[in-house]
Amino acid sequence: MTDAAVNIDRLSKRYGAVRALTDLTLRVESGEVFGFLGPNGAGKTTTIRLLLDLIRPTAGRAELLGMDSRRDAVAIRRRTGYLPSELALDPRLTAGELLDYYGHLRGGVDTAWRDGLVDRIGLDPSRRLRTLSTGNRKKAGIVQAFMHRPDLVILDEPTSGLDPLVQRAFLDLVREVAAGGACVFLSSHVLTEVEDAADRVGIIRAGELVTVDTVAALTRQAVRHLVLRFTGPVPAEAFAGLDGVSDVTVDGALVDATVTGSPDALVKAAARFELADLSPRDTELEDVFLAFYREAS
């Protein structure tokens, strides 16, 4: 069996009484895009910084690309790209200078590939980082993480702060490098930002891994809030006892429903009346948790 790109074994990190991460065991293969999801404070950044040997575990260990995260840290970093969540870059450098600097520290990179990335992501390399918005700085961070064609890319909340167009270019890039055999490990606190790109998703909460599954399976458990507005008042009985629908409130022409899995039954019930508007709220990660916990209890 070949080595996993990421092989985490009962990894734990405590800060005094705070258990930032507890007994995380996880395996991610090469060629896989793995979404690491959890609300703020769940332990995503802690996990990622442990993998990169920036902080040291209280217990447990991790192997990246078949190498020990502590002992072989330098060899691992040679083949790994990293994007921190709180991206701080030297404000005096231009974006191009930053890429040059890290490129030199890596012993040179394929400049054609790098310049291609700069174009795809839409980074202006001549701008001083001080003058860039958070989103544009993030572009520099993304290019930097991919420019040496890493076998493993670890990205901490890469999509937050990116405008939708760049987000798409970024997710295309993620899929492309994964198709080329690299492993992409990305964290987020919003499922919708990673569900298109991730093969599997792990959900972490309060330092503990809650579940690992494919995006499709998780969405099946996902809970959505749908708000339906009709042109006139509708009877409450029409929306009672529907499959996969709970917590229905009918208030005149407004129906608020919570749907687990497929909204098919609700939509068919609604079709009997004249619908003015149907607005799904975002699938919040919190809801996926709720679904998971409900099932467990």
Partner: peptide, 11 residues
Amino acid sequence: GDLDLLLAQPV
């Protein structure tokens, strides 16, 4: 904060 990314380079 910019030490983070520097220390993630292979040095």
